[in-house]
Design a protein around this nucleic acid. Sequence first.
RNA 1: GCGCCAGUAGCUCAGCUGGAUAGAGCAACGGCCUUCUAAGCCGUGGGUCAGAGGUUCGAAUCCUCUCUGGCGUGCCA
Length: 554
Amino acid sequence: MLVRDEVKNIITKACESAVNANKLENTGLPEIRIEYPKEERFGDYASSFALESAKLLRKSPIEIGNTMKEFIEGSKIIEKVEVVKPGFINIFLSTDFLHQCLMNIRKEADQYGKFDKKNPERINIEFVSANPTGPLNVVSARAAAVGDTIANLLEAAGNTVDREYYINDHGNQVYLLGKSVLARYRELSGEEVEFPEQGYQGEYIKEIAEECGKYSDEINTIADEDELIDFFAAKAIEHNVAGQKNDLESFNINYRTFFSEKTLHRNGDVESTLALLEEKGMIYEEEGKKIFRSTDFGDDKDRVVVREDGRPTYLLADIAYHKNKIDRGYDRLIDIWGPDHHGYIARLKGAIQAMGHPEDKLKILIVQQVNLLMQGEIKKMSKRLGKFSLMKDLIGDIGTDVARYFFIMRTMDSHLDFDIELAKRESSENPVFYLQYAHARICSIFREAEKRGFKYNPEKSSTEHLNNPETISLMKLMVRFPEDIYDAAEKAEPHRIASYLLKLAQKYHKFYTEHRVLSDDSVMTNTYLALCEGVKIILKNGLHLLGISAPESM
RNA sequence: GCGCCAGUAGCUCAGCUGGAUAGAGCAACGGCCUUCUAAGCCGUGGGUCAGAGGUUCGAAUCCUCUCUGGCGUGCCA
């Protein structure tokens, strides 16, 4: 159980006891809420219960707090309870308890911070899903870092999580892609061709065309122009998706499924989805089009799902895709989208409801855009014009660790100004190195201990040596690690982990400069080594959650 | 017009389910290595929380309006 919840239970019980002893009136008192005080001198956990209930009880918050205090004191885990100024009840954990927690962290090791859930949810999280019309850019990299980290967090929170990537290998963009490659292919064989007006102009299109040279025999047998375009489109998609997979793998992401949109059209899922919506009375016809009543679910207007010529729109395929995911047995779906798709939320969530599922079956997270700065100026990106910064180049320039950390350290709904030059230049004093350095430092101490022939035995550690400000402050933060994971998973806010680890590294570095770990006093050495081991475990687990390596030396 | 996101230190950003004196990193300046990694630590300076009202014991946080920037508002995907 989270220490936070234990504290909550203690205060809740204290409240009940006070009521039973007629010290407090039972007048529909609010639920106890536990918060983290802003400053350490206000304790480790605090409750504003007395402030909240003052009016109801017609007593001063201080008076209520003092009454509560009597019933809270005496718990093994609590060292002291303070009732202060406006009426906060501040709780201080005991050093003995913290020592126990430390031993527990060592015992749990890799598992520390993870939860067992009685009934784990099966969650599908879909992210990046960039069009297969080119390589991944830095905007996709942000979604990749965020999505994968949220997946990690949900796993740590005890769920079964599958990462999924939707390949939009159907529709106009694909047609245009095929046309573009075909044009380049013809150019290569010396033909004078007009490049498609809206075509993809990137250099990589030429490379694909070149590669297609090896299929020349096959290509020569295709007479129909559309068939030819299809052929080149298929080859281009194959090439692009392979490249995207490569980039994602080097970003430490392992997808379980790459799902092709084309299969939905081929296996009848699109039609059966339409049939289902019609059956539910959610579709009406107008001027030969079939239209989904998305306004029933708060959308601005109803949406066309089948065009006049009978072709389904992207929306219908997407509804079919989400139905497919639900049919595969997932309890919950999460989509991560760019800001340019936010207008799409209402209609898709509406469709989920129209098919008879609860509104929160699907959660859509919007990751805000990345502005790429070059010499302080925003660089405009356009995939169609082939002007964009590649994810591959980013990884090559600053590395996966730094890139992932940069994308995760901010909240996902803030627009991110990403200055690659700065990220490269600062790479030696980057926050991520600060975390990794703390880990490497600890590893180094253990190597040194071994070199000196010290026999590390954490059972011989003692609370006595933990009674100093740096150590206590460090342990209090260590205890909060599972709580932060819980909150970060619950709220889908991965940046919380980055902040947490930064604070932990700070406190560790502070401890390190104030205290010598290896000394002649073997009890003290064992105690400090146990503390170091605990920090090391958390740093490693935390960095792992972010998809970042924890080096043994730097 | 409507919708979404943002506006907090010189810069990049935390803090936002209302709580205690508004924080961090970077940049600037000044200290700390005979001893486990100085990729570290300590200290100093730096704020009209975009603005105006409102709600209450209490507002950066909630409500309304205004201003600024970005994005969206396809039978594209």
